[in-house]
């Protein structure tokens, strides 16, 4: 039996990890809500952002957090472009299936280009504050993990405020809940969908920067992220942002705690077990997820 201190530490690490999962899953479920698209390339963009942060630090010697000044607007634009130029041109009848393939193709291209430009070598940012940690009731928590969590929390809060309290957020939620009705009351749903995608990719930029702070990165790393993220949005109910956040926290915690008895690799299987169990028992997801019934 692991000591209480160790369990406490895992608990905190789980919450910190869950925060990052929540941010990234929010983006993924947002795309689904807007267009019924499973955006496989979401995590590839995440890794791309992490690489850009690393490159920023390695070449310019600046703090990787500053790279967000570039990557966030860049990714927002890339998201809008992806939606307007590619996804919106697919036939509506086969959109769900074909969009998966298209975003899968984008993920392959990103992974290939990362491998070509930066080679397959594992990379890691060395920060002055990288080794610093805080003592917290006997648990040791790395400062970078706290920063990463803080970034995720701020971005998620920003997303929440945007969706709840701005005109654009209302239009976006209307588009998600009932596209036809939104069009009838004069919302330009195409445009809203484009911005929604931009928003989703912007969260990937924030997430990627956060990830780069304390993780070793390599081009094919995105496959290790897309699986858990997809599991989270199914468990949370496809298209439901709050559902994704709750599921992310729950599963992040579960993963962190299971690492104690099982080790890191086996603990990851919790996501897939949760995914299969959800689909077998309650395919529409556990939190919200009205949309999933038909998909």
């Amino acid at each position: 039996m692991p000591s209480t201190a160790l369990i406490f530490q895992s608990l905190i690490l789980g919450i910190l990890l869950g925060g990052l999962y929540a941010l990234l899953a929010a983006g993924l479920t947002l795309y689904f809500g807007i267009m019924r698209v499973v955006m496989i390339a979401h995590s590839a963009f995440l890794i791309l952002a992490a690489y850009l942060a690393w490159h920023f630090h390695a070449r310019l010697g600046l703090d990787p957090l500053l790279s967000m000044l570039v990557t966030v607007p860049l990714f927002f634009g890339a998201g809008v472009a992806t939606q307007r130029l590619l996804l919106a041109r697919l036939r509506p009848a086969t959109l769900t299936m074909m969009s998966v393939l298209l975003t899968f193709a984008i993920a392959l291209v990103i992974e290939g280009l990362l491998g070509y430009v930066f080679t397959g070598t594992q990379r890691r940012i060395r920060l002055d504050y990288g080794a610093a940690s805080l003592e917290f009731f006997g648990a040791r928590i790395a400062v970078v993990k706290l920063i990463a969590f803080g970034m995720a929390a701020v971005a998620l809060l920003g997303l929440y405020l945007l969706m709840k309290h701005t005109r654009f957020g209302w239009a976006l939620r209307a588009t998600i809940q009932h596209g036809d009705a939104a069009r009838l009351i004069g919302i330009d749903t195409e445009r809203v969908a484009g911005y929604g995608f931009g928003l989703g990719l912007a969260t990937a930029a924030v997430g990627g920067t956060a990830l780069s702070l304390d993780s070793t990165i390599y081009p094919s790393l995105h496959w290790h992220w897309i699986g858990p993220l997809m599991a989270i949005i199914v468990v949370g109910g496809l298209g439901s942002v709050p559902g994704a956040a709750i599921a992310a926290m729950t599963l992040g915690l579960a993963q962190s705690l299971l690492q104690l008895p099982l080790g890191a690799t086996w603990a990851q299987t919790i996501f897939y077990i949760a995914l299969f169990a959800t689909l077998a028992v309650r395919p529409q997801g556990f939190f919200g997820g009205r949309l999933a019934q038909r998909f």
């Binding site: 689904f32 769900t96 299936m97 897309i226 699986g227 690799t265 995914l275 299969f276 395919p283 998909f295």
Partner: peptide, 25 residues
């Protein structure tokens, strides 16, 4: 049974998850 009971998106998700979990195992 798990993958086909629901439509489209979930099927693709399960199919990708299958590869990832088996690689892990």
């Amino acid at each position: 049974f798990a993958a086909l009971r629901v439509r489209g998106a979930s099927f693709v998700i399960v199919s990708i998850a299958l590869v990832l979990i088996l690689l892990l195992v």
